[in-house]
Simulated assay, not measured.
Amino acid sequence: MTTPSPINWPKYQHLYEEISVPAKTVLLEEGKTSRYAYYIVEGAVRLWFNNKGKDTTFQFFFEGEGVSSIESFRTGQPSMCTIETISAARLLKVSKENLDLIIDSEPGFRANLEGIIFHRLLRYTKMFIAQIRDTPQERYEALIRDQPHILQRVPLQYIASYLGITPVSLSRIRNKLQREK
């Protein structure tokens, strides 16, 4: 996922705020209404939800990507997820009203956003099917193959959660794959 372009972002500086936050900063809490979307200048962010008392990660975002609880941001309904920084982050924060002004002012921006949303939906669909079809080891191997940057930037506990397994199971899979090399 990339940033929509070619937007003349300095032209809209008065409509967004640049913020710096430490790791583990909650940008949006599950059950609250999303009032902001974020663009990641530096850092890593995850989306997760409370699954019967267990933290379940389902998406990671990095530099050059936008993040929000799209459903809540667009509809005003409570968010189904929490948005939290994994590392210290520098973000551009924009309200729905101001983002709508930018969208209305920039030809082609809406189409770019629709493309990003479609890409995100495609990722969710692949993840959903993999959770049903693939073994935990197959899901981990796909992560190594398709998104190795996640393994370099994200703590193992969040990767295990993302894969739908415990950290102990992830450790076993990693050890098994190391022995097979």
Score class of each variant (00 low, 15 high):
L121H: 13
S171K: 04
D134V: 05
A89Y: 01
N98T: 10
M1I: 12
N50F: 00
L170V: 10
T75A: 08
Q178H: 07
I132P: 02
I129P: 00
N175W: 03
Q59K: 08
H119F: 10
S69A: 15
L143E: 11
E138G: 06
W9Y: 14
I129H: 09
F58K: 09
D146T: 06
K54G: 08
E138S: 05
I159C: 05
R123W: 13
Y16G: 00
S20P: 01
R145P: 01
I83T: 13
K96F: 15
S20A: 15
N8L: 13
S79N: 07
H14R: 10
K93L: 09
G76P: 06
G76V: 02
L99R: 07
L177S: 11
W9I: 10
V21H: 14
Y36I: 02
I83E: 04
E138W: 07
G66F: 14
N8S: 14
R120N: 01
I70P: 10
G43K: 07
V168W: 03
S72Y: 13
E138K: 07
Q13T: 11
T125L: 13
V168N: 12
L156N: 15
E29W: 09
G53H: 02
R35E: 13
Q178C: 10
K24T: 02
L99A: 11
L122R: 11
L163W: 14
I19Q: 11
D100W: 00
L151Q: 15
Q77G: 01
L156R: 14
V94Y: 01
K176P: 01
A88F: 04
M1T: 09
R153L: 08
S68V: 07
E138L: 04
I117M: 13
R46I: 06
Q131W: 05
L177C: 10
F60I: 04
F58W: 07
G53C: 04
S72D: 08
I159Q: 07
Y162L: 07
V45M: 13
G76C: 05
Q131C: 01
L163F: 15
S171Q: 14
E180N: 06
A111G: 03
R120W: 12
V26Q: 09
E114V: 00
L170A: 02
I86S: 06
R172V: 04
P4N: 01
R123K: 07
I103L: 07
P22I: 15
N51R: 09
S79R: 09
L143R: 11
E63K: 08
G64E: 04
R133T: 14
P136G: 05
P107K: 06
E30C: 01
P4I: 09
I144M: 15
T3Q: 05
K126Q: 11
L151I: 02
Y124T: 03
